[in-house]
Design a protein around this nucleic acid. Structure first.
Length: 564
DNA sequence: AGTGAATGGGTCC
DNA sequence: TGGACCCCCTTCAC
């Protein structure tokens, strides 16, 4: 396991303070000697790390050949003193110690990003142990709010509905995709079918009810599938938008597909002209497809006529990437966009032109996603790379500031699919959200990245869902529209989570075992989960390790905590 | 098993 | 406005 590997590496480097390396090759320069001499700092034991360097200046007068010969023959002593790989300073080390990550004490806080403390001592981490904690709710004193509180709130039952958390790993496909998973979608009518897109442009179809029924269509797109939406009239047809600049419509039975939109008809002419489609949604009233590109433009496509009917219209800073679109579930003409210009914007499709947005929601960094609440569409949930999940009240709020801010670790923006907090479509109170977590915690000796369920109305972490078999980060999460099922995409693998105590057909478990599938986790013939050996993987005790935690009630029942 | 690469946004000049 | 450089707990293939 990579975790063990990390632990070993840190142990050995700290226990060995000096290493003698005999250079036998005649390479021009040793990367070791140059790097250690540039540090130029004294070791803890008082000796200088590289004695040769001290005399190098005087010897430089001598002939090059002699110098080279000396380098060739002379053994080079390098030191493995405690150097922090983050700040390059000495006296401390950042990195994993076992399953616990030690932060560099010299760096500012990476979690809440406020000055005055480090990640280790961040109040948003220390108070809850995991980093999810509400920032202050905006104190609104508008007359509308007053009326709401006075007349309506008293009638709202104070008992919150119990959230249903699918917290137990049910099944999975390891290395289903050949590149990392970028998006997930449940089939609208076939309950056990999960669609997945990946970075390579492939489309996966998996019937997790039957476990083995899976298909990958390899040539739908030429790069990242960013969004999937089903055709409203025929759920055998799937629309996909991609960084190859196209929207395609694919027949899920045959795998054949055709263009609805191609923004790069002339092919690759460099990054300055190559258009990529990131956001996509469907206006269900008009059957219109909304897509947006990496230059700030929106396009409207008629799915039936297969033609572009509007656009390009600038909806975000020109030249900046639009990363998400979402139509209001109640008023589909009202839609949300979010982008790299640090804004989420509300638009009316009926009067659409540049700078005609109804509202602009300011964020501290890039906005990864913005979603209307699923039932009323009154609340907006945004995820920003400033490590905050925000709720904006589009009825009672003034939208100049969010009504709730929750500090949560999800800011890793490179090499991972961006994290996106999504509403639970089945929660009648429209307050439960799910999002994967970037930062890891030490859970009984294993560093895990859980999937967090957060009550956005209180800011409380309701549950952190994890499994010791899944040590990779799960940036892609999707809750089933009807069933108590969570799908997660972690690297190239897909997982299905169900609620504990729910249906767990013993028959299928046994059948899975006989086919060398343990813990209802399917392994491809040559694939290994997180680099484990086959023996390790097939060990029956693995099942004992399967666990998920439900932390409901663990945290203080206080409504909000003031910002530090 | 150790290394490098894929790769995007922020910041600074 | 654009290019160079920096970056934190990645993941994987070679």
């Amino acid at each position: 396991m990579p975790l063990l590997k990390r632990g070993k590496a840190s142990l050995s480097s700290s226990s060995l303070s000096r290493v003698l390396v005999h250079m036998e090759t005649d390479s021009e320069e040793s990367p070791f000697s140059s790097s250690s001499s540039s540090e130029g700092e004294e070791e803890e034991d008082g000796r200088v790390s590289d004695d040769e360097d001290e005399g190098n200046d005087e010897e430089a007068v001598e002939g090059e050949e002699e110098d080279r010969a000396k380098k060739r023959k002379a053994p080079i002593t390098i030191s493995l003193k405690k150097v922090c790989k983050v700040c390059k300073g000495t006296g401390h080390e950042a990195g994993f110690k076992g399953a616990t990550y030690i932060d560099c004490p010299r760096k500012p806080c990476f979690l809440c990003k406020r000055p005055g403390h480090t990640t280790m001592s961040c109040p948003h981490r220390v108070a809850t142990e995991h980093g999810v904690i509400p920032a202050a709710r905006r104190n609104t004193d508008t007359s509308l709010d007053y009326i709401f509180k006075r007349q309506l709130k008293a009638k709202i039952p104070m008992i919150k509905p119990t959230f249903v958390i699918p917290d137990q790993l049910d099944c999975g496909i390891i290395r289903f995709h050949s590149r990392r998973v970028t998006c997930l979608e449940f089939h609208p009518t076939r309950n056990n079918v999960l669609l997945s897109g990946d970075k390579k442009g492939q489309l996966g179809i998996w019937d997790y009810g039957k476990l083995h029924e899976k298909t990958v269509y390899g040539s739908i797109h030429s790069c990242i599938v960013n969004n999937m939406k089903f055709n409203l009239e025929n759920d055998g047809l799937l629309y996909t938008s991609s960084s190859d600049g196209t929207v395609r419509c694919t027949d899920l039975e045959t795998g054949t597909s055709f263009f609805l939109l191609d923004l790069n008809p002339e092919g690759w002419n460099g990054p300055a002209t190559w258009r990529m489609l990131y956001g996509m949604d469907i206006n269900v009233e008009k059957g219109l497809l909304l897509v947006a590109d990496n230059f700030g433009y929106l396009y409207l496509v008629d799915g039936r006529l297969k033609t572009r009917i509007a656009g390009p219209i600038v909806i975000h800073k020109k030249g900046s990437k639009v990363v998400g679109l979402h139509c209001n579930p109640v008023q589909p003409d009202i839609f949300l966009s979010c982008g790299n210009d640090h804004f989420a914007r509300i638009w009316d499709a009926r009067r659409l032109e540049a700078e005609s947005s109804l509202a602009s929601l300011a964020h501290g960094r890039v906005v990864n996603s913005a979603y209307f609440s699923p039932l009323t569409g009154n609340k907006i949930l945004t995820t920003s790379q400033d490590n905050r999940i925000r709720v904006w009240d589009s009825i009672f709020g003034n939208l100049e500031s969010p009504s709730r801010e929750i500090v949560h670790s999800h800011d890793f923006n490179r090499h991972l699919t961006p994290f996106r907090a999504e509403w639970d479509p089945k929660d009648p109170s429209e307050s439960l959200a799910v999002i994967g977590r970037y930062i890891s915690e030490n859970y009984d000796g294993v560093a895990l990245h859980p999937i967090d369920f957060i009550d956005m109305s209180t800011g409380k972490l309701v549950a952190e869902v994890m499994n010791t078999d899944i040590t990779t980060i799960s940036p892609v999460t999707k809750l089933h529209p009807r069933d108590d099922v969570l799908a997660s995409g972690s690297s190239r693998s897909l997982f299905i989570w169900k609620r504990r105590g729910g249906q767990c057909p013993e028959q299928r478990l046994l059948e899975a075992k006989s086919k060398k599938i343990v813990g209802r986790v399917e392994k491809k013939s040559s694939g290994k989960l997180n680099g484990e050996s086959d023996d390790d993987f097939n060990h029956s005790s693995k099942e004992k390790k399967l666990k998920a935690k439900n932390l409901d009630g663990k945290y203080l029942s206080g409504q909000t905590k003031a910002k530090p």
